[in-house]
């Protein structure tokens, strides 16, 4: 996770000597500890920072329940980069620097539509980066504009699960596939869509199935 390591001579990539059983049990302990003590970097560029970094960290929602309340302003002390807000071309090299300054192992959560794909600025904007993954590798995506604090917590729990299952001491920096933390388990996208259409038709004054031309569009 974290760094995509192209350099085969990286000293940290060496396998650790010892019996497999010993390494596996060490893995469990290390990953459990890492997943429950994530230190986020206070990095917010726009609207998502209020919901994800501030409202989530304050008394009502309380990030401390998940062990991630120690927000650090310095990237040297943080191991979780929460990209809260739009990334524009001018910010791109700085985001890369911040990421490079963080110590391994490091994890990235991209919150909000802007950090995932450019969001409302995906069209007709000459500055916005279309998604933070164009700059740095992202582990978990949390959609929303901005996402609710609860959605962020779900993303954080997904990341914790990834850490517990993911990285091993024998193969450090192994990167797993990005996760979209949108749907709670056992809920399908079709169910949500059907429910939305049902609610909209029940409450709306306009007919969703009618010809758009009649509305003057």
């Amino acid at each position: 996770m974290g760094l995509i390591n192209d350099n085969p001579e990286n000293p940290f990539k060496e396998a650790i000597p010892g019996s497999p059983a010993f390494i596996t049990s060490i893995d469990k302990v290390v990953n459990w500890a890492r997943s429950n003590s994530l230190w986020p970097l206070t990095f917010g560029t726009s609207c998502c920072a209020i919901e994800v970094m501030m409202a989530a960290g304050a008394a009502h929602h309380d990030l401390a329940r998940f062990g991630a309340e120690v927000a650090r302003p310095s990237p040297r002390q943080a191991d979780l980069l929460v990209i809260a807000g739009t990334i524009v071309k001018r910010m791109e090299p700085l985001l890369k620097t911040l990421y490079d300054q963080m110590a391994e192992p490091k994890y990235v959560i991209a919150t909000g539509a802007c950090a995932i794909s450019g969001g409302p600025f995906i069209y007709d904007s000459y500055t916005t980066i279309r998604g933070a993954h164009e700059v740095i590798p992202v582990d978990v995506y949390v959609p929303g504009c901005p996402p609710r604090p609860e959605a962020f917590f779900y993303g954080l729990l997904t990341l914790q699960k990834m850490i517990i299952e993911g990285q091993t001491i024998a193969k450090p920096f192994e990167r797993r596939k990005p996760v979209l933390s949108v749907l709670p388990p056992r809920i399908k996208l079709e169910q949500i869509r059907d429910e939305l259409v049902k609610n909209l038709t029940a409450r709306s004054v306009t007919d969703l199935n009618q010809n758009p031309k009649e509305l003057g569009l």
């Binding site: 739009t86 007709d124 500055t127």
Partner: peptide
């Protein structure tokens, strides 16, 4: 550093 070109 967060100029998104909203006016354009």
């Amino acid at each position: 550093y967060i100029h998104r070109g909203i006016e354009k």
